[in-house]
Design a protein around this nucleic acid. Structure first.
Lengths: 150, 150
DNA sequence: CTTGCTGCAAATAGTTTGCAAGCTG
DNA sequence: CAGCTTGCAAACTATTTGCAGCAAG
C-alpha cells in the first residue's frame, strides 16, 4: 500500500510565478521563494519550518512575511491550514486535494494517505445514510496508530 | 439521525471524587469543580471556557490551575486533547469513547457524531486492506460541510 | 507528615498588527 | 505611479513554568 509521499517534480520559478498570478497574487520574490519551499518540504510544515527553509537563500525574508504570505496562499486556495496534533501550532498542507492522515502515537508524525476506494466507500455510505440538518461536503479520516518498522 | 448531543445525567461531587481517585489523582476541590464543569459544558471547551464556568462558584481557582488540572486529566485518560479548526487554541474533549466530528464551514461549530455502523464499516475496510508499516488503532472521521436549518 | 497541588506572576511560544519604505503590475 | 507587499518591532493570545504555602491521603 502506497502512502503517497508526495514528490511531484519541483516546479521552476516561472511555473511558481504563474501559479501565483493565476491565483490572483503578486509574484514577489519572497512569495516565489516561500511557495518553492512549500513544494520542497515534506509533510505539513509550520511557518517556522518554511522560514528556516527559505532563509538561507533569501536572508532578507522575515518570519512575519512568511506568515503573511502563507495567509494569502490560504486565502487564494493554494494551501490548507491544518492544526497539528497538539493544537499548539499551525501547520500548512500544500496538498489541497482531498486526502486522509495517519498519525503515529509515538512520534506524532503525520503521514498523508490517499485512497480513492475509501473515498468511494464513504461517499456511498453517507449518500445512503444522510444527516438531518447537515450537508456533508468532504471527508477526512484521521487514523491513529503506531508506525511499525517495515 | 441522532447527533449525540451528550447529556449524560450530571454526576454528584462524590462520583466525581471517585472518578478522580480511580484515575489515580488527588480529589482536590479545584479538580472536582473543573471536572464538574467539563461534564456541564457542551462540545469541546477551551481552558478559558472551563475557567469561566468554574470561576463564579470558586473565585479562588486560577487559570493556571485549570491548565494544570486539564493536563493531569489528559494524562490520566479522563479527557482528550483536540485542536480546534484554526489550530490556535487547544480544546478538550470530555468524551473518550471513539467518535467522529461534523464541522460546519460557516460557523466552525464542531458536533460530535457517533455511528457504530460507520465504525464497523471502517474496521472491516482496514482489516481487509491493511498497511505496510502502520498499525491502525482507532479511526476518527472529520466531516466538513454546512449545517442546514432543519 | 509528606508529597502533590495551588495561586500568583513572570516567562515562553506562536501569531498578528502598524507603519514607513520598496517593489510589482 | 498606485497600491499591494515587505521588514521590523511591538503587541497579543494561549500556554507553561517556578516557587512558596496549603491540603489531601
Amino acid at each position: 500500500m502506497s502512502l503517497h509521499t508526495a514528490h511531484h517534480s519541483l516546479p521552476s520559478p516561472e511555473q511558481l510565478r504563474e501559479q501565483l498570478a493565476t491565483a490572483g497574487l503578486r509574484a514577489t520574490q519572497q512569495r516565489v521563494a516561500i511557495l518553492a519551499a512549500l513544494r520542497t518540504l515534506p509533510g505539513h510544515p509550520t511557518a517556522e519550518q518554511v522560514f528556516r527553509q527559505v532563509r538561507p537563500a533569501n536572508p532578507t525574508v522575515s518570519l512575519g512575511t512568511v506568515y503573511k504570505a502563507l495567509d494569502s496562499f490560504v486565502a487564494a486556495g493554494l494551501l490548507r491550514r491544518v492544526a497539528d496534533a497538539d493544537g499548539t501550532r499551525r501547520r500548512y498542507d500544500p496538498d489541497c486535494t482531498n486526502h486522509h492522515h495517519l498519525v503515529c502515537q509515538n512520534t506524532q508524525e503525520i503521514i498523508d494517505y490517499c485512497d480513492p476506494q475509501l473515498d468511494r466507500l464513504l461517499q456511498e455510505f453517507f449518500a445512503a445514510r444522510g444527516f438531518e440538518n447537515f450537508q456533508p461536503h468532504s471527508y477526512s479520516l484521521h487514523i491513529t496508530g503506531v508506525r511499525s518498522e517495515a
